[in-house]
Nucleic acid binder design. Sequence first.
DNA 1: AGATTTGTTCTTAAACATTTT
DNA 2: TAAAATGTTTAAGAACAAATC
Lengths: 463, 463
Amino acid sequence: MPVNSFEHYPMSWKPDKATLKRPFYQSLALYLERDIVNGFLAPGTKLPPQRELADFLDLNFTTITRAYKVCEVKGLIYAVTGSGTFVAPNAARSITISAEKQANLIELGFVESFEETNTLIKDSIQRVSEKKYVEQLLTYNDPTGIPHQKTAALNWMEPFGIHADQEHVAIVSGAQNALAVTLASLFEPGNRIATDLYTYSNFIELAKILHIQLIPIVGDEYGMLPDDLEKQCSQLNIHGIFLMPSCSNPTTVMIPDFRKRELAEVIRKYRLILIEDDIYAFLTAGVIEDYRQPMYQLLPEQSVYICGTSKSICSGLRVAYMVFGDALREKILKGIFNINVKTSSFDAEVITELILSGKAHQIVSQKIQLAKTTNELYFDYFPIKKNHEHPLSFFRWLPIEKEIDAQALEADLQRHGVRVFHSVRFLSGQSRPEKYLRIALASTNSLQELEIGLTKLKKYLDN
Amino acid sequence: MPVNSFEHYPMSWKPDKATLKRPFYQSLALYLERDIVNGFLAPGTKLPPQRELADFLDLNFTTITRAYKVCEVKGLIYAVTGSGTFVAPNAARSITISAEKQANLIELGFVESFEETNTLIKDSIQRVSEKKYVEQLLTYNDPTGIPHQKTAALNWMEPFGIHADQEHVAIVSGAQNALAVTLASLFEPGNRIATDLYTYSNFIELAKILHIQLIPIVGDEYGMLPDDLEKQCSQLNIHGIFLMPSCSNPTTVMIPDFRKRELAEVIRKYRLILIEDDIYAFLTAGVIEDYRQPMYQLLPEQSVYICGTSKSICSGLRVAYMVFGDALREKILKGIFNINVKTSSFDAEVITELILSGKAHQIVSQKIQLAKTTNELYFDYFPIKKNHEHPLSFFRWLPIEKEIDAQALEADLQRHGVRVFHSVRFLSGQSRPEKYLRIALASTNSLQELEIGLTKLKKYLDN
DNA sequence: AGATTTGTTCTTAAACATTTT
DNA sequence: TAAAATGTTTAAGAACAAATC
């Protein structure tokens, strides 16, 4: 029997002891999940400490540990040694982002890629469809890409600072697919990956699906802090790190070279697998003056470099290039075979044709121009510029003051005809006091529509 | 200290107690893995029982349980209550199958799809590339397929006995990709899925990557035995079942309707998620006389029906249709967004065009004709016919007598210029006494090449 | 700076379940 | 059919580690 009565102690959660069935840890985890999903326990709520709940329920406290663990693995709660256990910010809510076009809704949420440039692609598709060797594109052969396609891929990435050979590049079905292949091939459930505090929400969701734990690392204006990374690595067994150095999603931070080198040192020391998502390389390398190199070149043996063509060339043809160290090669290829079998050689060929014909560069130029225009427009409305934010980002990270719950804010704005995403969607760990909105600039049908959207947004936020 | 000396007991594995470090279970698991990978412990070897090893190492036996568990999860060993723990048949060897074309090697291993029919596809690609709405195929829109593509999909599957609506069908990037989405979305690491004793090896590998445990169920000439399924369900917490009822890979078994109903009853009773891979529907529905219906129609609410077009229409355009119950919908869509974002609408459109124009049916007719011819040829060489084997299968399941290790046999035949796969690659669980080869009939460049391959194979086996 | 709070990990113990003999 | 062999699952205990106050 418990020694104390807890009637007078405030415990945020008091599961009904009488209805608890064996096995206790499962029963308890189920109750906890139910109360979180029902909304009885709101995000951020501090749960009773393990020992206190154990005392209350008259169980050994490691049984509570186990029950809490079940819910932590499901992403419902998170624990901080010394502070306690808390309901996760996105518990019981999917933050998966996808294109869900709705009439009369201005899309500033999902980040597209100025789809108006797609007019340039039709020709290339036709040209490929008329090639003599089309039939060779229609078999199971060359599951990681046809040699000449890989050569074009390497040419494409060369100005981004990537140097690799045919054996260490593979074509997959878009950058998200590359991430799925990477996580499934190189990590196991329970492994930990370091990420920025705010990171790409579909990466968070993917990690959740595969039961990989994200460890949020503090950053400053130059990106992730090497000291905090070092600290976390020294006290936790961390297996990998996810970064978007040339333009982080959602913060738009561009990591300067000195910081890349500092981070690389820690990554090398702890032998982390670096996952570098360089989907915005085309906006940075050769465009931003002091840009040096991708982190892949600092750590080629322990890195996976992912270069999607959805943002730079065409979003509908699902193609991304993966470049990887030799030690990772076998596992990645196996992952590709088991998740994709292969990527459509036809799609890859169209991208190849676009690259070889120079059309891809033309498209990139147009997109950069559009990025300039839309960013200027944005800064007319929200003239807050910070150091080391990418000036040409396809989206912006807008600090907001409004004291309103994230879901309510998104819903409010949706009623006003604008879709945006609140910063809680991008939280890799615990709640934060600062709030932001991610504003996509590359997803409206026209500049006019974007302007209307920004006007509505500003009006709403100023109220 | 241990009570007994084990000098006189035969223990197949004696880890060095002195070098064992804390944590013991990890250290022990590492040693075990090393000794299996090195080949010191051969597949099939019985490991010391937990209690015996514990006694030898002077540890509590549940510490051994934990160490063994680590290796079991990695697929290195498997445990059978009452019998002991054994080194897995495919421990430390990848059984992933992919197209790896080599000159001078006749492909009877990897199953392709009579790629000579691809000549019929070029026209459709051109026609699609000339459509007015091509640009609409190049965006992020309609991530699960454009409505008219889904309509065509449902039309395509209608003769197979599938009735569903737009909301419960999605287009993904091939059948293997559909399986990846299904497993990642609907199952968690540690979950169990029932399969045939011999099953599709890339399904085995995929399950391994995602840490889903396969529970092999015994079968007879009609396919999986409902009694054994019932038995396993009653004593293990099984979450799903994987079946290829219209033509099982690799056994070619076609499950008759009565058996489907018996199995469906058990599946319903234990609320398993049924994963029905119906990639060979086109060889069966409307072709085989007494074919009735897919199992999906018996259990629509708890099933995922997967209909790939790689075998029936074109292997290079990566398209498969998924049909699912409403209860599974949300999770599957989330899985699609996080693993694929979307499938190329262009590829899906070409398949749609092929279906709507009737060309797809023409291709299917050709493939069926080729299947007839090649199967006749096969039976000339190996005239062993069993009941309920699919007469038109793209591969055959050849029982062999030869007393030779699987890898050696494959290597031997490769030296003779023929690539085949040994039955151990398809084992979902423990080793079996019977041996088979899976002989692909749809992968050679010509009938002549197939004939040469079969001749070589027969000659080798008769020796 | 040290005690306290809180979460983590490993090992052991006991009860259980299944298969084999 | 019952006993023995063998693996499984849950719970508890102990030592540890980090963060907070």
